[in-house]
Amino acid sequence: MISVKHVFKTFGSGAAATTALDDVSLEVARGEIFGVIGQSGAGKSTLIRAINLLERPNSGTVTVDGEELTRLSPDQLRLARRKIGMVFQHFNLLAGRTAQGNVELGLEIAGVGGAERRRRSLEILDLVGLADKAGAYPAELSGGQKQRVGIARALAGNPRILLSDEATSALDPETTRSILDLVKTINVQLGLTVLLITHEMDVVKRVCDSAAMLENGRILEQGSIVSLISTPGSRLAHELFPLGEIAPHPGNTVIEITFSGGSADRPVIAQLARSYGLDVSILGAAVETIGGNQAGRTRLELPGTPLFNAAPINDLRGQGLLVEIVGDGAVVQGAHA
């Protein structure tokens, strides 16, 4: 649905030039919620603005729904943008217009007639749960309500895609959850493809089907959450399930087991202890519901060296679990934290 290929974007020139996007390629499938996560300054904002060409890349192509936006004329691009809704961190609502007036803005721009504008804007305000606030000005609305208006404005023109630029970053945790639930609802109800950028792992956990990690303008990894979880050494997976740092006893083996899908509800550790008579210690564990499935990671300490524990580790791998040996007792890399 969205295909970004080899996109470069540099700001400034000469010695002062900074590279915001460095050979970024991205594939977002139809109907999914795709999250791009990264620290501030990683290039997320530039990336999402490159999708509807608010920021035009220096090179590379952006294709949305089969239409290569980077080849369009300015007039064609304006028409294409009407099919790409966008919501913003700071809402960007017109202070002089009511909630309804803000939702009607895009319809006015598209030349939709007055009666149809009113009908459509009220319908969409109802969808985002703000039917009773149609006449309120943004100054009279809470942050969450403002973002609902922002989402309604983005949806009014029946877009195929919703771009979300840190839409929940200015909201408190509870409001964030309600907005994310709304995004999920419209994703399902309207079959909308959503590309969101965020610096909060919780956002990815809560709604995303796929994710990419952006650092210094480069995509480090991307894919569906399920496949990322079962990828050895995936940084995204490690950050989805942070285990912290716990110093093990010297001479022992530290392993990390990643569970996903059906394996999450099996008594793996109890079996391990019973079958091999091992004194297993749990150093850390994180379990989350991702995409409706239980998934998680556990860090275990087994007595003895990895060589000594080869049989139980192979047994675990034989059960389809992802097992990584993260320390042989001497040093534990705390890098995943």
């Binding site: 509807n52 608010l54 304006r78 028409l79 294409a80 943008r81 009407r82 790409i84 809704g85 966008m86 913003f88 700071h90 960007n92 609502l93 017109l94 202070a95 002089g96 217009r97 803005l105 895009g106 006015e108 721009i109 598209a110 404005r153 983005a154 023109g157 771009l163």
Partner: peptide
């Protein structure tokens, strides 16, 4: 006028004159 408002109007496919007439002057 907050540049974010101009950006929002651009994301909705506004022409420059629409941005002037519907965003910059009213706001």
């Amino acid at each position: 006028v907050d540049s974010g408002l101009v950006e929002a109007a651009e994301s909705l496919g506004a022409t420059r004159w629409q941005i002037v007439a519907k965003v910059l002057v009213p706001e």
